[in-house]
Amino acid sequence: MDLPAILDAGHVDDAAGLLRRYYTQKLTSGHVRTGARFDTWAGGGDSPGAADRITADDLVALALLGEEIKGPAVVGLLETKAPEIGELLELIPVSLELADVTGVEYVHVLGKDSPAWLLWEIFRGYRGGQWKMGPTKTSKLLARKRPKLIPIWDSMVARSIGAGTSLTQWEEWHALLTANDRELVRLLDEVQDRAALPVRVSALRAMDVVLWMDAKQRGFRAAPGDDD
């Protein structure tokens, strides 16, 4: 994975500009883009009372990012698999940040058969689900529930930075965020400070937005069917 120039220390103002534009720029409709409300819709997916279950508002939040969740997945996430999902979410601390996970802890937090890994497989429909959800939708739903820990995987961004697959990207981002005494985290904090957003978002979400805006600006596009 190669970070683009937009996340270099010399481009903090440029990155802050992209972040500010995403969250505050009014489009031709006269409103800010709907994705700007993903983080805060209905108080956020990690808010008290909602953090350890999938809610209808979480699925609305995904729609704000342009992701349609089909009927079988709606029933599975909100009803059939709800008890199992709730038990796994309870095992993942809401406040845990990816950059704070030590190398020793990683396998238990995000490694194979960890609660996050099992949630990924449930959301995808791999564990008895009667539906199929692609990696982009799945990562966005996980990021909605644990925005400080789980990064969004987007095929357009992945192409622009040479990232791996959706699950291996967790490990790649963990390595980058913890390198050089959390240098990237400090840079992302500075980007948010300069962007002066109406509401502060997680470092992972700020990074995702900056990379998405930069990839779009550089002409990258998601291929049709990437999340089927």
Rank of each mutant, 00 (worst) to 15 (best):
T28P: 00
L91W: 03
A175T: 11
D46C: 05
G66L: 08
A5F: 08
M156P: 11
E183V: 02
E171L: 13
L88S: 06
L88F: 09
K81C: 08
D181R: 12
K112N: 07
A116R: 03
T34K: 09
A16H: 00
L141M: 11
D208H: 11
L177F: 10
P83T: 07
Q25A: 15
L89A: 11
L7H: 05
L177R: 04
P72S: 09
A175L: 13
R21F: 05
A51P: 01
E68W: 15
M1I: 12
L96K: 10
G45E: 13
S202G: 13
T24A: 11
L64V: 06
K81H: 15
R182K: 12
D57W: 13
V32P: 01
I122F: 01
T24C: 14
V209M: 08
I161G: 02
V210W: 11
L89C: 12
A195Q: 03
E105Y: 07
D8K: 12
V199G: 00
P83N: 07
V191T: 02
T136H: 14
D58G: 03
A99M: 06
W41S: 04
S47I: 07
Q192V: 06
A50P: 00
G162L: 07
V109W: 01
S139L: 11
T178M: 00
A179L: 10
E67T: 15
G76D: 05
S47Y: 04
M207L: 13
N180G: 04
P72G: 09
R20E: 09
M133Q: 08
L98H: 01
L27P: 00
G134L: 04
A5D: 12
G66I: 06
A82R: 11
A42T: 04
V94Y: 03
L62F: 10
A179D: 12
A116N: 01
L187M: 14
D193W: 02
A99E: 11
A143L: 10
V94D: 09
Y126W: 02
H108I: 05
L211V: 12
S160L: 08
K81Y: 06
G86S: 15
L78M: 12
V191S: 02
G76I: 02
E171Q: 12
P72L: 08
K148A: 07
K132P: 01
P147D: 02
L19H: 08
R124V: 05
L96V: 04
V60I: 15
G86Q: 10
I54N: 04
L59I: 13
L204C: 02
P48E: 08
Q169E: 13
R182C: 01
D189A: 12
V12L: 09
P83H: 05
G225E: 06
D57Q: 15
L211F: 13
S139N: 13
I69Y: 14
F123S: 00
A196H: 01
R124T: 05
D13A: 10
S95E: 15
E87L: 14
P198S: 04
V199T: 09
L3Y: 09
H108T: 11
T102K: 05
L89M: 13
S139A: 13
Q130I: 10
T40N: 09
E87N: 14
L184D: 06
A175E: 14
